[in-house]
């Protein structure tokens, strides 16, 4: 057990260092931005009519006059104490904004994650097992098409078909307009189209990779031997087990792309989630919020890969024994 703990501790330290790197990189990039927060948010005309005192006050609010190193260190200091600052656009604590937005996005992300994983694995197995025949061609053709379309365009198409033509699903937002307290059913109805868009794009990628793995495994010597012995249920007994490891990697690695996709999809469907907050923070030069979102997103991605690393041992006895032997 001690080696498991040691392994986890090592990974956690690495993750913390990576998070530090992400926050520093994001901060430096935002700091390098030539866009003046005053110009973007207040506007040239309004600035022209302001007194110098007012401008100085605004500059202080947007933090335009403090040196960069001091700003980063003070941010880091409070971040370690669990305070990510105050969003300049929403005028509320960043953590509060992120928490609220994430809880809206989380349903979307979780559904899409599970759905795309299951769909991708299933289609990948189907295609790989029927290599060269029509199921393979069909699955590969569809997946290639989907992965060459931008996620937001796919969202637009679904929007045109289901919301504008057929009028069976709402055109956007997470709850009905002016709806007050929305029921679960209504929330689901609003999450259906964005969730579907995200799942389709995610599943295509996973299916294509799974297919490659399945083909690799089916070409291996042990499958040939198993066939020669006249074994049946090769797919379930051999292929599925050997594909499990890369499938887990793919599934957890897809978190990053899923969040990236949600930025686009939420923008198309005006879904008030984390991705939309990231876009408005970026366009409005809201540095604390954008920094917070970047760090939280990176933490989710690193957390995913950590989980995958820990799961390897549970899935593959060779890795478990190898780690124990060391």
């Amino acid at each position: 057990m001690s080696h498991r703990l040691q392994f986890t501790a090592k990974k956690l330290v690495r993750m913390a260092l990576l998070l530090l790197g992400v926050s520093l990189t994001a901060f430096l990039l935002m700091n390098a931005s030539p866009l003046d927060p005053l110009q973007t948010n207040v506007g040239q005309a309004a600035l022209g009519s302001m007194s110098p005192e007012q401008i100085a006050k605004l500059e202080e609010y947007w933090g335009a006059d403090t040196p960069a190193a001091e700003r980063y260190l003070s941010w880091l200091g409070s971040a370690l104490r669990g305070d990510l600052g105050v969003s300049l656009l929403y005028r509320r604590p960043v953590l509060e904004v992120i928490g609220q937005r994430l809880s809206t996005s989380l349903w979307l992300l979780a559904c899409a994650w599970v759905l795309s994983g299951a769909l991708g694995l299933g289609l990948g197995l189907l295609a790989g097992a029927n290599r060269g025949r029509w199921p393979d061609r069909l699955v590969r053709g569809c997946c290639l098409t989907v992965s060459s379309t931008p996620a937001f365009w796919l969202g637009l198409l679904l929007l045109i078909v289901f919301a504008v033509w057929l009028k069976i699903l709402p055109i956007g937002m997470a709850v009905p307009i002016g709806g007050g307290q929305a029921t679960l059913l209504e929330r689901l109805r609003h999450a259906l189209l964005p969730g579907l868009t995200l799942s389709i794009t995610g599943a295509a990628n996973i299916a294509l990779h799974t297919r490659e793995k399945v083909v690799d495994v089916l070409d291996s010597d042990y499958i040939l031997f198993a066939r020669a012995r006249g074994e049946r249920h090769i797919l379930r007994r051999h292929v599925l087990r050997n594909v499990a490891l890369p499938a887990v990697t793919l599934q957890f690695a897809s978190i990053g792309e899923l969040i990236g996709g949600s930025v686009l999809v939420e923008q198309v469907f005006s879904y008030p989630g984390l991705g939309q907050a990231a876009v408005s923070a970026g366009l409005g030069s809201d540095m604390p919020l954008l920094l917070g979102i970047t760090v939280v997103t990176a933490a989710l991605v690193f957390g995913g890969s950590l989980t995958a690393d820990l799961l390897y041992g549970a899935i593959d006895p060779r890795i478990r024994k190898g780690a124990a032997a060391q």
Binding site: L18, V22, G260, V263, L264, A278
Partner: peptide, 9 residues
Amino acid sequence: LVMGVPHIL
């Protein structure tokens, strides 16, 4: 590090 941040972001 670079893979930890989604491409779009």
